[in-house]
Simulated scan of single mutants.
Amino acid sequence: MEGLMRIHSFNFLKDKMNENFSAFLPQDLQFKSENEKAAVIQKIKEFYFGNKPVSADEESVLSYVDFISDLFFTYPTLRAVNMHVKAGHDEIFLYEYSFVEDSTPIVPYTKNVRGATHGAQSKAVFDGDENNWQSNDESNISEELKNMKKVMRELWLNFITTGSPVPAGSALPAWPAAGAGGAPHMSLARTLRLRGALLEERARFWDAIYERHYRAPAPPPPPARRIEL
């Protein structure tokens, strides 16, 4: 739930979304006309929020988290994975970190929803607890988090030293490299479980938009020629 990094701005940004959703379009899209742009904006808004305004309720706030996640992190990651795989890279290991515990804050406007926020996987690798991850003291953290830290450190160390998070002979669940389409991926939660395509429906939705409207990078124009008199 990468979008939780913007949860404290929800009340402000929901009003901005209702006023002008076009301001939230990815910057690498282009359109032939304003009508075409408006149609895509409407399609995106309906996909995440349906036919109602973005509001302070559980359904809207979770859709907001998904939208922010996809906008800044998840879809760019999955698009990059596809590019790497198509370029011949066969050692891309994809994961979703979703470990939470009872002390993880509940998402605002929800009854009992918790999620791993941006950077949570790094805190699980580093020393300390989630409130002071630069400390070496881990005496106050739960046994579940201690176990998660142990697993995460093993995965990271394996990848650094062997190029694979789960090399041959490891007791951890087998973790094959990802192929095109974001599959498989490892779910890193209280237990590790290999799953299929990551966020498949949301990825297909954005794929369709990018196939039609992607604006490829272009070099800047040459500077104006200076004429001295």
Rank of each mutant, 00 (worst) to 15 (best):
S60C: 09
N20S: 14
K150W: 05
S98W: 01
Q121P: 00
F49I: 07
K14F: 01
N158R: 05
G88M: 07
G196V: 00
D102C: 00
S9R: 14
E211F: 06
Y214S: 11
Q27E: 09
D90P: 00
L199R: 15
D57G: 06
H118G: 09
G115W: 07
L25H: 11
P184Y: 05
I92R: 01
S142M: 01
R6E: 11
A116L: 01
L188C: 01
P184Q: 02
V61S: 06
F159K: 10
A216N: 10
P26Q: 12
K123S: 07
E59W: 00
E59Y: 04
Q121W: 00
L25T: 11
P219I: 07
L4A: 06
T117K: 07
P223A: 13
L13W: 05
F93E: 02
W206Y: 15
L194W: 04
E46A: 14
F24K: 11
I141R: 05
A116C: 01
I160C: 12
Q27G: 09
N147F: 04
K16V: 06
L194D: 02
P53G: 03
N131V: 05
N131S: 13
N140P: 00
I68E: 12
T74K: 03
F126S: 08
Q42D: 15
L155K: 08
S187W: 01
K52H: 10
K45D: 03
F99K: 10
D127S: 15
A197E: 08
I41Q: 10
E130Y: 14
P108R: 07
L94W: 10
Q30P: 00
P108T: 08
S164T: 14
S60M: 09
V65G: 04
E154C: 02
P223W: 02
Y214F: 15
E101S: 12
I41E: 15
A189M: 02
T74I: 08
N140Y: 01
Q42V: 01
P76I: 11
L4E: 07
L199H: 12
K86G: 01
P219Q: 08
E154K: 14
D70V: 08
T77D: 03
V81R: 13
R79Q: 12
G119V: 12
D207S: 02
I227V: 14
L198P: 06
S33M: 09
D102R: 09
G181K: 06
A124N: 06
Y97H: 13
A87R: 15
E19Q: 13
Y64Q: 03
E34I: 03
F73N: 05
V85G: 04
S103M: 02
L172E: 03
L94T: 04
N112K: 13
R225Q: 09
Y214K: 08
T74H: 02
F49N: 05
N131R: 13
E130G: 00
T110G: 06
D90L: 09
